[in-house]
Design a protein around this nucleic acid. Structure first.
Lengths: 190, 190
DNA sequence: GTCCATGTAGACAAACCTGTCTACACTGGT
DNA sequence: ACCAGTGTAGACAGGTTTGTCTACATGGAC
């Protein structure tokens, strides 16, 4: 994914907090990241933080919102970039995901991770995750030829993708996950 | 999965702690579950706990070990039960998983959850997860006819299964996940 | 009978967490 | 000139966490 420059230069305090939290939450998990660290790391005073975000929970939801936009932008862009004229559009999926999986900061899907960490405790997290996966599935659907089963197929593919994501997260080499995913997708190449 | 009776009756303190922790960790997550709660819930004194387990981390690993044995026993049993004479063995997979997904205490895969929660911080968790998935994949491989691609196919199927697991975890109805998984498996029914 | 493993109850230290608060400084709009 | 908005630094309260420690009880092996 994007390098997320995180230049402290011209960013507002609000944005510095948001980007820093995005980074730390993704790297170490939400629970493992204390507010104090976010505050220190984003070079902001405590009061400033609480002026922008009423609580840590609010920050978590704001970060997920930001993450969704960022990830979807990268995803659709990567799919477009890996598309080639006379091949099925779906073939762009695996190369696109490969970019992400091979990133040295890859730690799986932020939404799955947050649902698992906070699941029931923070209302809104599960809904955000469902929305995210819904949009991801819709983006996948656009790679498929129009047909009555398009939605059904897109859901199946999305599930395979999620499986590949979590596998790449605990297994050493992402390549094996990508290869297996490619095998699962073959029947859909048409 | 098993109802895990958890009868406090004749169990040793060690086993009561282990089963209680297994239950609580799975329900609410490892980080969200304090040692004090495990101790109170298993009806044991604090010192007794620390005599059996030197630290919470040790308990976590012991619970994962227990979980692996318990889950694999259920899995192979369920696969055997749903096998029918003149159909491909792989067709037992979805009905077996359906048992688990529809359990009211279903909260996804304990190993994926723990990796995501503790990932890098507790050495051993990732290894335990890899071992678990390796054994799960081997059990799936036994459903496939012997061939040169059997291992490759089993890995692909395992990834699809993991995708279905996480999907069933944040989506309301497990049925959709199972149906999508079934669709993904069709090419492998042979 | 004595000893020791195993158990209970609960106080305690030290660290860490979130969120509030005081006191002060800079800047742009009116 | 003034004031509202935004910023900084850091103390503080009240809660939770893990892990240690004291003091005492019970039951079986020898």
């Amino acid at each position: 994914m994007k390098p997320a420059t995180l230049e402290p230069g011209r960013l507002s305090a609000h944005d510095r907090i948001l980007l820093t939290a995005h980074d730390l939450f993704y790297r170490h998990g939400v629970r493992a990241t204390g507010i104090d660290l976010v505050i220190a790391e984003s070079g902001v005073a405590k009061l400033t933080f609480y002026r922008h975000f009423p609580s840590k929970n609010a920050l978590v939801l704001a970060v997920l919102d930001h993450r969704h936009r960022r990830w979807m932008a990268w995803f659709t862009d990567a799919l477009a970039r890996h598309r080639s004229r006379n091949r099925p559009a779906l073939e762009a999926l695996v190369p696109a995901l490969a970019e992400w999986f091979h990133d040295k900061n890859f730690r799986g899907c932020a939404f799955l991770n947050t649902v698992i960490e906070l699941g029931g405790t923070l209302p809104g997290v599960m809904a955000a995750c469902r929305l995210h996966k819904q949009d991801m599935t819709a983006a996948i659907a656009e790679l498929l030829p129009a047909s009555r089963q398009r939605k059904r197929q897109a859901l199946a593919i999305a599930i395979a993708v999620d499986g590949a994501i979590v596998h790449a997260q605990f297994e050493r080499d992402a390549k094996a996950s990508l290869k297996a995913l490619d095998g699962l997708l073959h029947p859909y190449f048409g």
